[in-house]
Amino acid sequence: MAGASEVAGDERTVERGRPWRRQELWPWAAFMVVFGLMPVLYSAPYQHNIAVLICLTALMATGWNLLGGFTGQISLGHALFFGVGAYTVTVGELRIGLNPWLGMLLGAAIAVAVSMIVGLPVFRLRGHYFSIATIAVGEIAFLIFLNWQFVGAAGGLSIPIKEDSLLELQFSGQHKWEYYYLAAGLLLLALVATQLILKSRTGYYLAAIREDQEAAASVGIPVARYKQIALSFSAATVAIAGAFFAQYVLFVDPVSVLELAISIQITIAAVLGGVKSMWGPVIGAAVLLSLTETARLYLGGTGEALNLVAYGLLVMLIAAFEPNGLIGLAQRFRRPRNTRGQR
């Protein structure tokens, strides 16, 4: 879709940013309505939990997608940044009494620093090598935290329960709507940031890097720097989601925030929804978690397994037949048949 030709064609407008088109505004409106009314639609407490997790998963997947979908660097180790965020908040609160909001910011900052250390070596690799190297990085983090006594090792750490307060980011109400609106707000912020990046010169550079790194370098785009910028944004966003998650469940351990399964979960939401659109990760997260919850609700323990079967199948189908995910599938029905086939 956003091939090299489009990049070249719109070059005049790069300086002042791409103008907004009306059809780009309605997803925002839809987002506001759906996410604004979600707690009203879902009134049972367990549904609020799912609503919060949808927001957090969408937040992570949005962060991942700037690097994976828009820059074409498929990381399979993003649990690292999720863990960094979660552990920074928890350890900060426990050891030095750090405020969770500050802890969240600090977590994002540390994640950016870590992403720079990690980015330097792994960005030298391409394609499958890059992806496998990111798995290795994620596993190293997992194994270190699993055995590091200072951060609770395998047993994990609990955040002490405090009075309900926005400042302390703790709410004991069963309905969880405070958490929900805060998470939705963070997601909205991340989406706005993503949109601004995509509309800016950086967005074009990232698209050029995704299409062809050599070609991008040959026209003078500093490929290494822009890949790092994408990774830093991505790491910070995922870390914020991790920090919020830790604060939400008041507990952190390596299995719940650093395992390979978390990295996969982050990517799958984006892939399922569609990586070529910034709304893909949001839709993917909503579908993924609703599916999981429905299966769990109606089928219990077997439901969890059957849910894996179903979404494994879904991921295979999308990879094989509709690389643009659910959004691509929807467009397929909307568009007349003969204009399809732009890959």
């Binding site: 994976g68 979908g69 074409g72 498929i74 399979l76 394609g127 499958h128 992806s131 996969i264 990517t267 799958i268 892939v271 990586v275 894996l308 079967v309 979404y311 494994g312 199948l313 879904l314 991921v315 295979m316 189908l317 999308i318 990879a319 094989a320 690389p323």
Partner: peptide, 15 residues
């Protein structure tokens, strides 16, 4: 794309 190539077997893993 590379993404499809990676995720088709990831889907298989989950499945």
């Amino acid at each position: 794309t590379l993404l499809s190539q990676i995720f088709v077997t990831f889907g298989l893993l989950i499945f």
